[in-house]
Simulated scan of single mutants.
Amino acid sequence: MQLLLAPMEGVLDFALRDALTRLGGVDRCVSEFIRITDQLLPERVFVRVVPELRQGGCTPAGVPVRPQLLGSDPACLADNAARVASLGAPGVDLNFGCPAKIVNRHGGGAALLEEPERLWRIMQAVRRTVPASVPVSAKMRLGLHDDQRAEECARALAEGGASELVVHARTRAQGYRPPAYWQRIADVRAHVTIPVIANGEIWTVEDALRCQAESGCTSLMLGRGQLSDPGLAQAVRAAVGGASATVTPLPTWEAIRQSLLHYAQRIEGHVEPRHRAGRIKQWLHYLRRRFVQAQQTYDAVRTFTDSREVVRWLGSAPERPLH
């Protein structure tokens, strides 16, 4: 079983990848997407989004990070994928699931699920250009407006040379509204021979086990659920492994509080001062779904606009008991 950390544009940057992978349980990350249009991007663009490329393509905790590319031109994507691979990336991921209107209007992300033949051409071009030793994976939704072509799209990517496929079990039209249609991932799996990883609406261990049962997938990609509960991946691993699993203590609130402080330090180098407090509160917003202490912290710092005030409060706040 592989447990992957999902790409979340505007949320899961390298600083948060660092914080979450230090807490344990995650086997691999996928970066936020790097938009590819009509040119070969310079090295600095890839390193800015995925600075892990400067340390062997891994987070400081040693977890591999695959840069994700988003675009619609096969040749240009192939050239940029080759450049990413030359920088030491442990793999390349292609985005066919982004639901953002501006991305879809320009023919990228989930919009490409209306064109299975183009999916095949993109994947084939990238696979031919990237060294055979470097995996090329893809992430897709079930479709744009509906899921009628999900199997066809998955086959196109597999036949184009994808090494594995992550399927977010909703269409672009369904956005992030529950439920996720995990049983449709099982239908997709039946049409391809490459590994398929299930994604979407996995918030708890119970969700993870039900997703595995309905999708038939052993491996999962965790996004908002892992942000809300940084111990989720470890808890899933323990639940699946049963008595034979290696028992790893789940992160306490104190460990998460320290991670918040570490995260605050890491964003100083790349987030404008006026946005830093908002980024810290953004993670706290997710954490309060799981932790009473996160709700208490959020309530205390909600009106702060200076990240230094947030950090001072986090640094001085004693651990609060659950109730």
Rank of each mutant, 00 (worst) to 15 (best):
C217S: 06
R177H: 02
P178S: 14
A81G: 15
V47R: 13
P230W: 00
C76M: 15
K281E: 10
R17H: 05
M1E: 08
L12D: 01
R308H: 08
P321N: 07
V236T: 06
L260P: 03
H285N: 13
A100T: 14
L20I: 14
V103G: 01
S307K: 01
A213S: 14
H270C: 15
D73P: 01
A89S: 09
H323K: 11
D146Q: 00
V240D: 07
E159T: 09
V205N: 03
W203Y: 09
L314P: 01
H106P: 02
G242Q: 02
E114H: 06
P195Y: 04
T297A: 06
P179G: 14
V49C: 12
A162Q: 01
V166G: 02
V247M: 09
I122W: 00
S133T: 12
R141S: 03
V196N: 04
A208C: 13
P99N: 11
A85H: 09
V292P: 01
G278F: 01
A82Y: 00
G200N: 06
S133V: 05
A239W: 11
H275C: 13
T171M: 04
D18Q: 10
D79G: 08
A277I: 05
V192I: 13
A6I: 10
V65N: 04
N80S: 13
A294D: 07
P51F: 01
I202H: 02
A243E: 10
T305K: 13
R276A: 07
L119S: 13
A300T: 11
T171H: 02
E32V: 13
S307M: 05
S31G: 14
Q2E: 13
A233L: 04
A132Q: 15
S219C: 15
L77T: 09
A125H: 04
G216P: 06
T171P: 00
E151N: 07
A173M: 09
P195I: 11
S228A: 15
A75Y: 11
V271A: 08
R312Y: 06
V103T: 08
A173K: 09
Q293N: 10
Q39Y: 02
A150T: 05
D147I: 03
P178R: 02
L144T: 01
G108E: 04
A154N: 05
C29S: 08
T252V: 11
A180Y: 02
I122Y: 02
M8I: 14
Q212A: 07
L3H: 02
P179Y: 05
S86Y: 01
T21Y: 00
P67R: 02
V205T: 07
A264V: 10
S31P: 02
P42M: 12
E159C: 09
F96G: 03
E151W: 00
L87Q: 00
V192N: 11
R22Q: 07
T171V: 05
R149N: 06
I202F: 03
D146H: 06
D27C: 12
P131R: 11
A111T: 04
P318W: 13
Q39R: 15
I267G: 11
Y286T: 14
R288K: 15
D299F: 00
Q174R: 10
V247S: 14
L4V: 15
G107T: 12
R44D: 04
L209E: 07
P321C: 12
E9R: 14
P42T: 08
R184D: 06
R22W: 00
